[in-house]
């Protein structure tokens, strides 16, 4: 297996992100998966995007325009 490389969009580890650590992942071409050097996360792009969507859920007002101040 060759060395891990930067993925196309510099995906951060979604598990580390949930504890507010920005940790770029490495991409394993042979297995088509990303993995984290810090925690033990491993997953393909779909899994990363699924968890990122989950991360955003905490921002209940992320899609709301607020004008009343």
């Amino acid at each position: 297996m060759a060395q891990g490389r930067k993925g196309k969009l510099n995906y951060r580890c979604p598990r580390c992100l949930m504890r507010e650590i920005d940790m770029d992942m490495l991409y394993d071409r042979d297995k088509d998966e990303y993995y984290c050097l810090r925690c033990s996360f491993v997953g393909n792009e779909e899994e990363v995007l699924r968890l990122n969507a989950q991360f955003r859920e905490k921002y209940r007002d992320r899609a709301r325009r607020i004008t009343d101040f």
Binding site: L17, R56, D61, R62, R64, I66, T67, F69
Partner: peptide, 18 residues
């Protein structure tokens, strides 16, 4: 911070308005 949905970021304007 991933404060968006789709490609819209109302949070930026909310912040400016605040």
């Amino acid at each position: 911070g991933m404060v968006y949905e789709g490609r819209e970021i109302p949070y930026f304007m909310n912040l400016v308005d605040q």
